[in-house]
Design a protein around this nucleic acid. Structure first.
Length: 519
RNA sequence: GGCGCAUUGGUGUAGUUGGUUAACACGCCGCCCUCUCAAGGCGGAGAUCACGAGUUCGAGUCUCGUAUGCGCUACCA
């Protein structure tokens, strides 16, 4: 049977990086096995689900480049009737029962966890058995009569008193849980016969003929409950693969309430990340291609090991697909590093490095459209870059990408290459322009000189500048660094003479003259 | 409270059936290159493989215990 997997987020907020990785792994597995990748929006919680969130999830997947779902998107809320019917069928077959216990009011969020622990403590002290629901063994007639009389009830799955549940997780190995640890879970809420999560997931997965459930480790223990539902429904149980979690620094849970936009995928899109770089980074959290890259040289000589491919940490999506396997996912949670108080380290170092690596080494033709989008968003784009000045544009992007880390750099640090209006970095001005008062006269004079250079290239501008420096009796470096700041507003950047050539003669001369005013 | 899962330098990971000086990447430090900053090259610091026992000639790899972290335990998803 061919593989069918799904990514099933609930639209209660933006797509966060943990969910994004789950989506990526599902996608990689589907592409690797030639299976189908499906998307299901789990919007059964009407109060928390929003349309905006659904949109953000879909956009996020598009941005990552894994939005090529093989079938129509399924909205779980549309299937509520099916879920209800399944529960009612179990009720009829005696595999579930009506619980007429009045619904208890529950605290929200945090309070719930404490309440659970508290209740468990009390229960243990009293020696209570959670299988002691008085309605579990109510006769069908009595149960039916009370329901007919309009008494509200929840529907619970009748879990066997003895035995245990067992499954083989592709990542976590054999999982076993005694039935005594599993209470008779509620399938249908008393209010409006609203189907609950575990039921909905299972019914939908059966309906979508999902063969492999790949999801976060937070679902690991609940999987036993879901297997019970599969069995009660007489459906084949899929294969499960649970993924280790992505944690915040210090090993704490990554939450949007505490950590804010850092966990949102849109942040990375908006701050100039390359989707492929982001996927690459994400894939390496909890998974590594193989160890073969380290052993390759040793084994190649013997000729015994055939190596299809040697990949390092930098991988294209295709390479990731070819090397992906659930077996190589490991079990311990990964920490995603960031420091809200440090602008240079606002997100994970390695992610930043990887993005820079992509910007500087990816095929230029793939980078160009991204730079264009960035320039358009900053109103720096000119249509000539696509026509008459295309060669110049490509050359310039290629020149400056060398030391950029995100796409934002093209419109910020790189602004002076695309516009005559640009800001001067304060430290650059004091370091390179105000440092030596002679520059007030030298710069305009250098401008005059540059204006006469023909043709105006990196080589000729260099010759002119060096000659000028020697005549003026100053070090080349003084003029070189001053030029960089005069022309780009920055103290750092590409080789100065490349900058001259890129900015061009007239603009260079003008900027040299104008810079004298800053001194 | 109960149950489950995890634990290799600051971080991400490799470490194939136990076998010599625990490998790679990011980050950090230094040197080279150099007109700046990156990149690149070279080198360095940083891990008693959570801790404690046990099995073994030999344990990061196997067993048990402890600790810590995380998850689940809900008429949330």
């Amino acid at each position: 049977m061919s593989v069918r997997v799904r990514f099933a987020p609930s639209p209660t907020g933006y797509l966060h990086i943990g969910a994004a990785r789950t989506a990526l792994f599902n996608w990689l597995y589907a592409r690797r096995t030639g299976g189908k990748f499906l998307l299901r929006i789990e919007d059964t919680d009407r109060e928390r689900s929003t349309e905006a969130s659904t949109r953000s999830i879909i956009e996020g997947l598009q941005w990552l480049g894994i939005a090529d779902y093989d079938e129509e998107i399924v909205f779980q809320s549309a299937n509520a009737d099916k879920h209800r019917a399944a529960a009612l069928r179990l009720l009829e077959e005696g595999k579930a029962y009506r619980d007429f216990t009045p619904k208890e009011e529950r605290a929200t969020d945090k309070g719930v966890k404490e309440e659970i622990a508290e209740r468990a403590r009390r229960g243990a002290a009293e020696g209570a058995d959670h299988r002691s629901n008085p309605f579990r063994d109510l006769s069908p007639e009595e149960s039916h009569r009370r329901a007919e009389a309009g008494e509200p009830f929840a529907v619970r799955l009748k879990v066997a008193r003895e035995g245990s549940s067992r499954f083989e997780d592709a990542v976590y190995g054999t999982q076993e849980r005694d039935y005594s640890e599993i209470e008779d879970l509620v399938l249908l809420r008393s209010e409006g016969a609203h189907p609950l999560y575990n039921l909905s997931v299972v019914v939908d997965d059966i309906d979508m003929r999902i063969t492999d459930v790949i999801r976060g480790q937070d679902h690991l223990t609940n999987t036993h409950k879901q297997i019970l539902i599969y069995e009660a429904l007489g459906a084949p149980v899929p294969r499960f693969a649970h993924l280790p979690l992505i944690l915040a620094p210090g090993g704490k849970k990554l939450s949007k309430r505490i950590h804010g936009e850092i966990v949102s995928l849109t942040t990375y899109r908006d701050r100039g990340f390359i989707p492929a770089a982001f996927c690459n980074f994400l894939a390496l959290l909890g998974w590594a291609p193989t160890g073969v890259q380290f052993a390759a040289d040793a084994t190649l000589d013997g000729g015994k090991v055939s190596i299809d491919e040697r990949v390092g940490e930098l991988m294209t999506l295709d390479e990731m697909v070819r090397n992906f396997s659930l077996e190589r996912i490991h079990r311990s949670n990964a920490i995603f590093n960031f420091d809200a108080n440090n602008p240079k380290r606002w997100t994970d170092d390695k992610l930043l490095w990887m993005n820079a690596e992509y910007i500087r080494t990816m095929p230029l033709e793939e980078l160009l459209p991204m730079v264009r989008a960035e320039l358009e968003a900053s109103r720096l784009w000119r249509d000539e870059y696509e026509s008459r000045e295309r060669a110049w544009f490509e050359k310039t992007v290629n020149l400056i990408r060398e030391r950029f880390r995100t796409l934002k750099d093209f419109s910020e640090q790189g602004r002076a290459y695309f516009a005559d209006e640009f800001a001067f970095d304060e430290t650059a001005v004091s370091k390179n322009l105000r440092k030596d008062p002679r520059l007030k006269e030298l710069l305009p004079a250098l401008g005059e000189r540059m204006e006469r250079v023909e043709p105006f290239t990196a080589e000729t501008s260099e010759a002119a500048l060096r000659a000028f420096a020697s005549e003026a009796g100053v070090k080349d470096g003084l003029l070189i660094n001053a030029s960089r700041t005069a022309l780009t507003g920055q103290s750092v950047g590409p080789s100065m003479f490349e900058i001259y050539e890129t900015i061009g003669r007239e603009r260079s001369a003008k900027r040299l003259r104008d810079a004298a005013r800053l001194i």
